[in-house]
């Protein structure tokens, strides 16, 4: 009975930096079942596995706009600033980014623990 909604995954996304893997079911800017939201980059998208709502999606990763590596959206691997950049590329060109981002990166260098807010609200 549940088959009708289960989209078969297109493939498995694998982050080239942290080796995170996730099956994705869509690649592009307009995830299915969510007309009102568009993505600003070509992304690898899966159905949000943590909610029963079928229309919810989760962006897992995309290509770095500089080096073209596949990276996940995790803050240890990449950041988005109007485009996706993998952290190695950001580090190499740190001057190109506004101070706010540079400060963020500095903060990240001290032993990083995931912010508490990431658990649940």
């Amino acid at each position: 009975m549940a088959c009708e909604t289960e989209r078969t995954p297109l493939g498995v996304f694998k982050c080239q930096l942290c080796a995170l893997t996730a099956p994705y079911s869509y690649q592009g800017r307009q995830p299915p079942d969510s007309q009102s939201v568009v993505l600003l980059e070509e992304s690898y998208v899966m159905r949000d596995p943590f909610t029963p709502d079928k229309g919810r999606f989760l962006v897992v990763g995309s290509r770095c706009s500089m080096c073209g590596r596949l990276v996940c959206v995790g803050p240890e691997c990449s950041l988005f600033y109007s485009k996706r950049f993998c952290l190695p590329c950001v580090q190499d060109n740190v001057d190109a980014f506004p101070q706010e981002i540079q400060q963020d990166l500095e903060k990240r260098k001290v032993p990083f623990t995931r912010p508490a807010s990431q658990r649940s609200s």
Partner: peptide, 18 residues
């Protein structure tokens, strides 16, 4: 890729959806 980064920072640019 770096050339057309927005000049003035705004947290909005860090969001990859609209």
């Amino acid at each position: 890729a770096l050339a057309d980064l927005p000049r003035a920072y705004d947290p909005r640019y860090r969001i990859n959806l609209s």
